[in-house]
């Protein structure tokens, strides 16, 4: 695929991710609305209405269009560097077209790069796959408010009586949800990474957000953990935007990585209700978006 065409497809991927929530997310919001009453219900109703208007007008669902996180699966014939370059150009053009807010800020000088391109921005993760010409690009736009609600626990953690076992893990998840209150724009989703090192534990938690909300974890033990914690976190009664209500989160998703004997990390990432992730797959030269 020539760079120009790829850039065009990636621009469409960015637009779609920013302006058009995936169907599983909207369905989850609608189901939540039907269960709620009063202010919790009207808050969810506003969110659903906003999402529909965003889609119709190609405007970003939320003004915090987040950090751009690209996961690229590519065959041997496709050079990662070219995909990254096309994606950077797409991000800059998307900013110019107001699909994205200029969101890359130099931490020392405070200067905004004005086009979302900067050191480590966008972020890319490449994975080589068997099929020589395969290309699948997944994009997540992860907002900053919800990012601030993330937490990493080192077990044992006496402050929440969490030891190095499943009960300890559950207490971490509950504590993270409690601390998040409505700050991350509830009802969001909790991504949980158990094990790994500090970096991979957080990565695992973030990668959970590429999953469909209504999927089932392949590991039965984790599937059970997800269901139990989803229910218990909702019982906290924090509700949409922290106004109180039954829907505190739309889901809990858990992944694990083998850990070092000395380390036991539980990392929790929070994504807001404006849960933006989409994918682009090139099949026989044709672009398919999902």
């Amino acid at each position: 695929m020539d760079p120009q065409t790829l850039r065009k497809h990636l621009l469409e991927l960015v637009r779609m991710t920013a302006c058009d929530l995936a169907p599983d997310v909207e369905q989850a919001l609608a189901r939540a609305r039907d269960r709620e009453e009063g202010r919790a219900r009207s808050t969810l109703e506003w969110m659903i209405k906003n999402s529909a208007e965003a889609r119709e007008s190609s405007r970003p669902v939320c003004q915090d269009t987040g950090s751009l996180i690209f996961y690229v699966d590519h065959g041997r014939e496709i050079r990662p560097g070219l995909v990254a370059q096309a994606a950077r150009e797409a991000a800059a053009e998307a900013t110019e077209r107001s699909y994205l807010r200029p969101n890359a800020v130099d931490p020392i000088t405070g200067k905004n790069s004005k086009n979302n391109v900067g050191r480590g921005s966008p972020y890319f993760h490449f994975n080589e796959v068997e099929d020589d010409n395969a290309l699948r690009v997944r994009l997540m736009l992860k907002g900053g408010g919800s990012e601030n609600c993330g937490a990493q626990y080192t077990l044992p953690d006496n402050t929440i009586e969490a030891s190095r076992d499943l009960t300890g893990v559950k207490r971490c998840i509950l504590d993270a949800a409690l601390r998040a209150q409505g700050f991350g724009c509830a009802p969001g989703v909790l991504g949980v990474g158990i094990g790994g090192d500090r970096m991979t534990s957080f990565m695992e938690s973030k990668e959970q957000f590429f999953r469909k909300l209504d999927d089932q974890n392949l590991d039965p033990l984790l599937a059970e953990l997800e269901d139990e914690m989803h229910k218990k976190v909702c019982e906290l009664g924090i509700g949409p935007m922290g106004f109180g209500g039954r829907t505190t989160v739309l889901g809990v998703k858990v992944g694990i990585r083998h850990r070092l004997p000395a380390c036991y990390f539980v990392s929790v990432s929070y994504t807001c209700w404006a849960y933006r992730r989409r994918s682009l797959e090139i099949v026989n030269g044709e672009a398919r978006y999902a």
């Binding site: 808050t43 506003w46 969110m47 209405k49 906003n50 208007e53 965003a54 007008s57 405007r59 970003p60 669902v61 939320c62 003004q63 807010r101 200029p102 969101n103 800020v105 200067k111 905004n112 004005k114 907002g143 408010g145 409505g182 724009c185 935007m241 807001c272 209700w273 404006a274």
Partner: peptide
Amino acid sequence: IGGLAVILAASVKQVQTVHKLEEFGVP
């Protein structure tokens, strides 16, 4: 309501002026 970006932007009828745009950046 957090994330109600399109609806709240639609309630903005006019941008009268902006201060510190160069220095602070758009957001």
